[in-house]
Nucleic acid binder design. Sequence first.
DNA 1: GTAAAAAATTTGGTGTACCAAATAAATAAA
DNA 2: TTTATTTATTTGGTACACCAAATTTTTTAC
Lengths: 207, 207
Amino acid sequence: MSHFAHHSEENYLKTLFSLSARDIKKVNNIALAQALKLNPATVLEMVRKLASKNLVEVKKDKTISLTEKGRKRALLTIRKHRLWEVFLVDKLRYKWNEVHELAEQLEHIESKDLIDRLEAFLDYPAFDPHGDPIPDKSGKLKISSTIPLSSGEKGKRYKVMSLAETNDAFLTYLEKLHIKPGMKLKVEDLHSYDQSCSLFVHIDGDP
Amino acid sequence: MSHFAHHSEENYLKTLFSLSARDIKKVNNIALAQALKLNPATVLEMVRKLASKNLVEVKKDKTISLTEKGRKRALLTIRKHRLWEVFLVDKLRYKWNEVHELAEQLEHIESKDLIDRLEAFLDYPAFDPHGDPIPDKSGKLKISSTIPLSSGEKGKRYKVMSLAETNDAFLTYLEKLHIKPGMKLKVEDLHSYDQSCSLFVHIDGDP
DNA sequence: GTAAAAAATTTGGTGTACCAAATAAATAAA
DNA sequence: TTTATTTATTTGGTACACCAAATTTTTTAC
Ligand SMILES: [Mn+2]
Ligand SMILES: [Mn+2]
Ligand SMILES: [Mn+2]
Ligand SMILES: [Mn+2]
């Protein structure tokens, strides 16, 4: 059998995609190693392998980026991840902060059409439980215009679209505050004695 | 990360279970290697590893069998396999002869409660799409009394409970004949010019 | 420009899961 | 019982994906 091919590769590509999406700064070996929680030596050789497969590109300044082929592969894995998350939440009644690790496994199931059938079964959801958009069959991603809450204006109302972090601590914290994607927030006050603006929010909208 | 531990182990245990269930004869290294389509050397060292983990037992006559612990593990993997098969057929509209390979992957998803939730979602099915019984949460298997069709009596009617083979060719053949578990068959005639009895059947019951 | 720090790379390992080919042991046949 | 065949086991590999530690290269600071 295929012997669980590419499980690792897919994680590298996915990580590379979200790193280059979030940060404007260039991604180097160290940054990628940190994001994957792996040793730089490990990452270095994998990056070389991916480069030889035309999935990533290493520029003269050692910056690592996805090729078009790599980007597409990343997006297809992200598609699987997010659709499985929707399944877990909508059908198996998981809480939205419990599904990440499971989706991390399920995203590697290899099949031509399983995920398309799953998508149909779930009624073609546009967003995953964290508010992140689900790429389509061909790997295209609809970009929704969102702003970070920290750059919101005092007194204005905003709709939570997606979350910058996916770590369990953060998601559990939001869960405790009953904040989730789709919910509307009103920025009561902004005060920044520390670098990151902290802010009070008023919950409003569907529970 | 757990690093896709035990994917292989589970396949060994599962194969060992079905070998010892089907055949009355003892399972040796060669038989296991054949069933797994692996090299005997490979199987030998894995069997030793499994023995050291108290999952299998190698008797003086070199016969390999599951321990109680190994049997339980095998049944839990089989439980996962069969529940995923039900999901694929009932929810994703796969044909019953298309799901085996996918279930072969899905059965290795690691989670304390995913499969219990899936079972609830599927409404506690007792059998998989091939008519095989689904072990319960604790790994217990309800044994239904079935007889091979070849030992059926001429003129009598039987209900298809399960299938001895799971290979694609056989399943596709049955699919073509519109034979599936739950269906009632009447044995029209038995004639055995070759070793295995061939027989004509009359389809009857729900389509 | 030199020294310090950071990043990249090399080197020599690990564990898992596989293989082919050679050898040893056990079993069946003559 | 001797030979042939089958089964078990050993030996020396491979690929993948990881690591720690040492080294080299690059960048930044002074
Ligand atoms: Mn993953
Ligand atoms: Mn998500
Ligand atoms: Mn399997
Ligand atoms: Mn089945």
